[in-house]
């Protein structure tokens, strides 16, 4: 139960971060969404043994982190904590691909380790970018951006509702779970019958709430479509942001900056 609750608090925190007012926060969400998607697509397009050429891509999340005034430690911890799935699947690579790939002095690295490290890098980059993106944009604004970029309006509105009532329902569920745990002894009462009834009640309450919300909407002139007034403007700053970063990604995709720097440096030292 702890995991979701913690996540839930995180949502609140991300929301607070998104409420700041910096230059990146003020950018049109569409610009940030498009750029972030381009970023992720570029990162995952690298071959599976690529490590060094992925490094320059750290610039983007780091930029959002710094310019958006986000707490680096928090974001970093979050990235480390989440989703073990990629790591679980990736950890098989070193076992399965043992062909020696790189030697540095006496140290021999198998292809599996290299690709595993590459997976971790990708993971850090993609998750880091998505998280910093949300933290400088805010969920509601992301929904607006989605809708303006062509997602069905119905879907976008539905996302807004889900997000709004997440807070209410998680609180209700927490209260119910707490009430149950106070009356569970020796694990008795934790079984399926009690669960079915508890969830069933929560479900019925949820359905009643939906009914009440609908009546509240109806009372204020709801006619099937939800109107939101949120002027978005895609101006010169947005263009510069998107073009600048996409150009950077493109260059870094085809030009391995770290290798170049490294070889120049070793050349220089010689």
């Amino acid at each position: 139960m702890g995991r979701i609750e913690r996540h839930f608090q995180d949502i609140g925190y991300l929301d607070t971060l998104a409420g700041q007012d910096t230059a990146v926060h003020r950018l049109d969400p569409r610009a940030k969404l498009v750029t972030t998607l381009a970023f992720i697509a570029t990162v995952v397009s690298f071959g599976k043994y690529e490590i060094s050429s992925l490094i320059p891509f750290l610039f983007y999340p780091l930029y959002l982190l710094a310019a958006g005034n986000l707490p680096a430690g928090y974001v970093f911890r979050k990235v480390l904590l989440v989703s073990p799935f990629a790591v679980l699947v990736g950890i098989f690579n070193p076992l399965l691909d043992q062909e020696i790939h790189i030697r540095i002095g006496a140290l021999a690295l198998s292809g599996g380790w290299v690709s595993f490290v590459s997976i971790l890098m990708r993971f850090t980059l993609t998750v880091g970018a998505a998280m910093t993106f949300v933290a400088v944009t805010g969920f509601n604004t992301v929904c607006m951006a989605l809708e303006r970029l062509g997602a069905p309006r119905f879907f976008a509105i539905q996302l807004l509702f889900l997000y709004r009532y997440l807070f209410v329902l998680v609180e209700e569920a927490t209260a119910m779970v707490r009430a149950r745990s106070l009356r569970v002894f020796n694990g008795r009462g934790m079984g399926l019958p009690a669960y079915g009834s508890l969830m069933g009640h929560l479900l019925l309450r949820t359905l009643d709430r939906a009914q009440r919300i609908h009546s509240a909407m109806w009372c204020r002139g709801f006619d099937g479509s939800v109107r939101v007034m949120r002027p978005l403007s895609f101006g010169r700053r947005e263009f510069a942001f998107v073009l600048g970063w996409v150009a950077f990604f493109a260059v870094m995709r085809f030009f391995n900056l770290p290798s170049y720097l490294g070889s120049t440096l070793s050349e220089f030292m010689r």
Binding site: M1, I4, E5, F154, I157, Q158, L159, L160, F161, L162, Y163, R164, Y165, L166, V168, L169, V170, E172, A173, T174, M176, V177, G187, M190, G191, L192, A194, Y195, L198, M199, L202, L203, T206, L207, R209, A210, Q211, I213, H214, M217, W218, F222, D223, G224, V226
Partner: peptide, 24 residues
Amino acid sequence: DGHRIPLMGVLGAFIFAAQMVNFT
């Protein structure tokens, strides 16, 4: 018919809430 919008949203939130309730 209009009432689906809040219904779907709230049930989506319910799915989240449901994931915090366990049974043995």
